[in-house]
Simulated scan of single mutants.
Amino acid sequence: MTKRQIICLACTAVVVASGLGAAAPSAHAATHVVRPGESIQKAVDAAKSGDTIFIAPGTYRESVLVTKSNLTLRGAGRTTVLKPAATTATATATAATTVPAAGRSAAVNACASAGNGICVTGTADKDVGNVTIRSLTLSGYKKNGIWATETDRLTVRNVTSEKNGTWGIAQQQSTRAVFRDNIARDNGDAGIFIANTVEREGGAVDTKKAVIAGNRMSGNRIGATIRRVRNLTVHSNDMTANCAGVFVVGDESEPGAGDMTIRANKIYKNNKSCPATNRLPAIQGSGIVLTGAETTTVRNNLILDNVGVSPLSGGVVLFQSFVGASNDDNEIRNNRVRGNSPYDLVNKGTGTGNQFVGNSCQVSEPTGMC
């Protein structure tokens, strides 16, 4: 070994020993254990950046607000269950006793009174970053199981969110989220929902490569709704028994919704019937619907036996939005689209530049796309 090699090895040893060659863990990282009868919120309030709140098996009747970055909420799997507080009075009392008096009890109570299970909330000036929620169940909340706003790098994994009034797992005005290996079932609207904002119109938000992957969505109004956002991937999900599998929704605002990839999903028998709303007609038998989307790729999906009589029924449906925005420059490629009714592939509206290439299908509107 040369003298130069010996010197290099010595330098490497010093770097490894000092911890400079890898990200060092936080010096004060701790695990807070919450057991049945104890408050999850109290543990969150006591936690510092880098800490984990471990929620032991049991049922917890509360809503939880997270406003700190770099926290992990981790349950023991499906045996860790969060449900709404028994009464509004109970929720208010819990908030008052578990949160410091410096104005935060009102925010916690707002999360509960809005009907949400876990809220991760930043501000317009400062996102809440690197929060992880995993391995637990949220059930029966009036509005959403998980609600996030102004967040960055939120991770939701191995969570079951079921029987909530609106959305199972939802976020707005947020970036780089990862929603992976979750179950979202029997929710009033979408199992998983990502939007720019739910309170006003506006151009699509760049999600900076958010990911929705490996989830199972069933029994919802819509499996996954992607509304007025850009730059994300929806892949390897299983969607069945919803009224519709995937909705990509845009409008006339700029920048437009789209610039995303929907690939390798299994979307089948989404034949539940849902009545019309003030936004959409009745929905039944829709696999993937693009309405007001641009430069979106739909490829290598298995889309089978989605059957209905709605204007939005069919395997892959390009439908002009109800505010007049067209679908433009989308690519529908190499999908297996079979047994859908009235059509496997549908291209309606005045959009331009849309391509249907290499799909295995039987019937289309207009004809000739199969």
Results as ranks from 00 to 15, higher is better:
T2L: 07
R4C: 02
I7D: 13
A13R: 09
V14T: 14
V14C: 13
V16M: 14
A22D: 04
A24D: 01
T31Q: 11
V33K: 12
R35T: 15
R35C: 06
E38N: 04
E38L: 02
E38F: 00
E38S: 13
S39H: 03
Q41W: 03
A43L: 05
V44M: 07
A46H: 07
K48R: 13
K48P: 01
S49Q: 15
D51I: 06
T52P: 07
F54N: 13
A56T: 15
G58S: 10
G58R: 05
Y60H: 09
K68D: 15
N70G: 15
L71P: 15
A76L: 00
R78L: 09
V81E: 08
V81C: 08
L82V: 01
P84A: 00
T87C: 07
A89G: 07
T90M: 07
A96C: 09
G103P: 15
S105H: 13
C111Q: 06
A114M: 04
G115Y: 00
N116Q: 01
C119L: 03
V120F: 02
D125H: 12
V128T: 15
I133N: 10
S139T: 12
W147F: 10
A148E: 05
R153L: 05
V156Q: 02
V156R: 02
V159L: 02
T160N: 07
W167K: 14
I169V: 12
Q173I: 00
R176F: 01
A177M: 11
R180P: 01
R180M: 11
A184H: 00
A184L: 12
A184E: 10
N196F: 04
E199T: 15
A204E: 02
I212Q: 05
G214K: 07
G214H: 04
S218W: 01
G219Y: 00
A224C: 11
A224F: 08
R228Q: 15
R230G: 07
N231A: 01
T233H: 06
T240I: 02
N242F: 01
C243A: 15
G245Y: 01
V248S: 12
E254I: 09
G256S: 11
A257C: 13
K266T: 15
I267C: 08
I267G: 10
N271H: 01
N271W: 00
K272W: 00
L280M: 12
I283P: 07
Q284W: 00
G287R: 08
A293F: 03
E294I: 10
R299C: 10
I303R: 12
L304N: 12
D305S: 13
D305E: 14
D305Y: 09
N306V: 03
N306Q: 08
L312E: 08
G315W: 04
L318E: 13
L318R: 08
G324M: 03
D328H: 05
D329N: 14
N330V: 03
I332W: 07
R336Y: 08
V337L: 09
G339I: 03
N340H: 07
L345M: 05
S360H: 06
